[in-house]
């Protein structure tokens, strides 16, 4: 049971959030003042630098590379995860057999598997896609499996009583009943696939944001590192926030 929070108006909440954001910026600025320009660029400096590098267009090829690999990896992870999850959720015994294995694989440091992926796929987009998908597919499978498992049997019985056709059963009963859980899986899988894609670019790649980050370490370009980090964090947070809104709406309706 959640302890009841005193209900606050939107204004008060916005105020608290503004205070928090202000604190973060203040700490950042302080670190910049203490450490100097070499250690950390200031919030304003980072923003200006980011705006300038976006405007100059140098970033685009790398962005496109990362986004392309990420998109393919995510589509793969999502389709394989939903399919595998549906099968494992429907067939109880296979689900029971697979679940502990999936959970175990989920909690190992998958970075260590990256050299194997590289040996199988070679340096390039193949390895990036495979590694990104590897990160995302397991949570999507697990969430989908739970969603399918937890469909109330009475729904299916009721549908059968009404002599529903298999296609309509899927469309009007099974899909709406599992959608909230599946979507949560897709949301978690989104961020993990992003991590996987970026990691693989950081370790072995000649392009993309991860590659740019590693190159910037070598050249000691703090401004590039800070602005890329800033962009990635913002992208991840905004994507997650958007998906969280949909997620909440789906779960409330269910």
């Amino acid at each position: 049971m959640k302890t009841a929070l005193p209900q606050a108006g939107l204004g008060a909440r916005a105020f608290d959030f503004a205070v928090f954001a202000g604190l973060v910026l203040a700490v950042w600025q302080l670190a910049h003042v203490v450490g100097g320009e070499v250690a950390m660029t200031s919030p304003l400096g980072t923003l200006v630098f980011t705006a300038r590098s976006i405007a100059s267009g140098e970033l685009w090829p790398h962005f496109e590379a990362t986004l392309g690999a990420f998109a393919i990896a995510y589509v793969l992870a999502a389709s394989m995860g939903v399919l595998a999850g549906a099968v494992l959720g429907y067939h109880r015994l296979s689900g029971e057999v697979a679940e502990p294995v999936l959970v175990a694989v989920y909690s190992i440091p998958k970075v260590t598997l990256y050299p194997i992926i590289l040996l199988f796929f070679g340096i390039g987009i193949g390895a990036e896609v495979a590694f990104g998908a590897l990160h995302g597919v397991i949570p999507i499978t697990l969430f989908t499996m739970n969603g399918v498992r937890n469909i109330k049997p009475v729904y299916i019985k009721a549908a059968r009583t009404m002599r529903i056709r298999p296609y309509d059963l899927l469309r009007t009963v099974l899909l709406p009943a599992t959608l909230p859980e599946v979507f949560t899986g897709l949301r978690v899988g989104f961020s993990l696939t992003l991590i996987g894609t970026l990691l693989s670019e950081m370790f072995g790649s000649r392009r993309g944001i991860g590659f740019m980050l590693m190159q910037a370490i070598g050249l000691h370009h703090m401004d590039i590192i800070m602005s890329l980090t800033f962009l990635l964090v913002m992208f991840a947070l905004m994507a997650n926030a958007a998906m969280l809104v949909i997620d909440h709406r789906l779960h409330r309706r269910a």
Binding site: V38, L198, I217, M222, L228, L232, L237, N240, L244
Partner: peptide
Amino acid sequence: LSAYYSVPVFVFYPMFIVL
């Protein structure tokens, strides 16, 4: 907190190496 794990923490690693 609920958005925390959507941030790829490893992207901070280059920054910490420089620091």
